[in-house]
């Protein structure tokens, strides 16, 4: 819904041969200064500039319009027009996204972006149309690694540790493959669970380890980079179809052009968080040889890969 003024001006537009004006809304669940929100704002700014103020996009940060799941439904419904969201919940709409969450499939950031910028990356974004939404661009979300209250120097240290995971079959199978004990629980409870020893550790990207304060309890961080799950900027199909072809092009291009600003901001955050965590006494262990980690999960990844053969092939091809 673009508000009454937009609707009326669309009508006027017909008679005065003016181009239609819109006010759109973009929901993000992160705080106003977070890299994804910086990307959102850059996108809104570029669209405003390129349509000479005809299309205004208001960014609603901090989950003001609801959490990820709620906002996705609002976008499907056409109640709001845009959202920035992590790609893992998108697997519930287009299960090919599941492949991006398999462990150790991307060997580096370069590998991931080679893939995302390739044909298959675009195909995944377009594959959401049957669910009444359309992906515009990918944003960076770094890589996820393990942290624990107990020492964590190699894959064998994970054996028997209780690790919090997001509730999904893949994540649980993944933990089991590494010999850890998977404990699904809501994110908000992780801190006190680390404190009381309900769990030994969890896994996330560096900025989240910082912002969640989990590092105050879990000071052992091992950079195995097991998942690189990108963020996605989405538009509601209802809004997309309403746009003229010219405006569609402007919106799509602005989304792509905002990626650079977002990625730069992400790198800055990661650097800042790393510095802060190191000062707080968190030990960062680099993984020199990823082979034992990959070997441990091989049969599990192979099992899942069968269902996503096309995507897995594209990931393979994108290897730098």
């Amino acid at each position: 819904a673009c508000g009454k003024e937009a609707t009326t001006s669309t009508k006027d537009g017909g008679t005065k041969a003016e181009e239609p004006k819109y006010t759109f809304r973009l929901a993000d669940n992160q705080p106003p200064d977070y890299p994804t929100v910086i990307g959102d704002k850059k996108f809104a700014e570029l669209v405003d500039e390129r349509t000479k103020g005809r299309i205004k996009i208001e960014v609603f940060p901090s989950a003001q319009l609801g959490d990820e799941k709620s906002v996705l439904e609002q976008v499907q419904l056409g109640a709001i027009e845009f959202t920035r969201i992590n790609s893992s919940p998108l697997a519930e709409f287009n299960d090919q996204f599941t492949a991006l969450g398999l462990p150790y499939v991307f060997e580096s950031e370069e590998h991931l972006w080679n893939f995302l910028n390739g044909e298959m990356g675009t195909k995944l974004l377009d594959g959401l149309e049957q669910s009444k939404m359309k992906g515009l661009a990918y944003y960076d979300s770094g890589s996820r690694s393990f942290y624990s209250t107990k020492p964590l120097k190699g894959v064998k240290d994970l054996k028997g540790q209780k690790i919090r995971v997001q509730q999904s079959k893949i994540n649980i199978d993944f933990m089991e493959a590494l010999g850890a004990s998977a404990t699904p629980m809501p994110y908000g409870e992780v801190f006190s669970a680390l404190q009381t020893g309900i769990i030994d550790g969890a896994e996330n990207n560096i900025p989240s380890l910082d912002s969640s304060n989990h590092y105050q309890e879990a000071k052992n961080f091992i950079l195995d980079h097991h998942q690189r799950i990108p963020e996605v900027l989405l538009i509601s199909k209802a809004a997309w179809d309403k746009l003229s072809e010219k405006d569609q092009k402007i919106v799509k291009q602005a989304a792509l052009d905002s990626v650079q600003a977002q990625r730069e901001e992400w790198d800055k955050w990661e650097e800042r968080s790393t510095k802060k965590l190191k000062e707080a006494g968190v030990t960062f262990t680099e993984v020199d040889d990823i082979t034992p980690w990959k070997d441990a999960v091989k049969s599990m990844v192979d099992k899942y890969s069968k269902d996503y053969k096309e995507v897995m092939d594209a990931i393979e091809k994108a290897r730098p």
Binding site: K162, Q167, S168, K169, I172, S181, A182, T183, P184, M185, P186, I198
Partner: peptide, 14 residues
Amino acid sequence: TRKLFNFVFFWSEE
């Protein structure tokens, strides 16, 4: 199950 056997049915919360 969590306290005694150290696991939670993954569908429990859902």
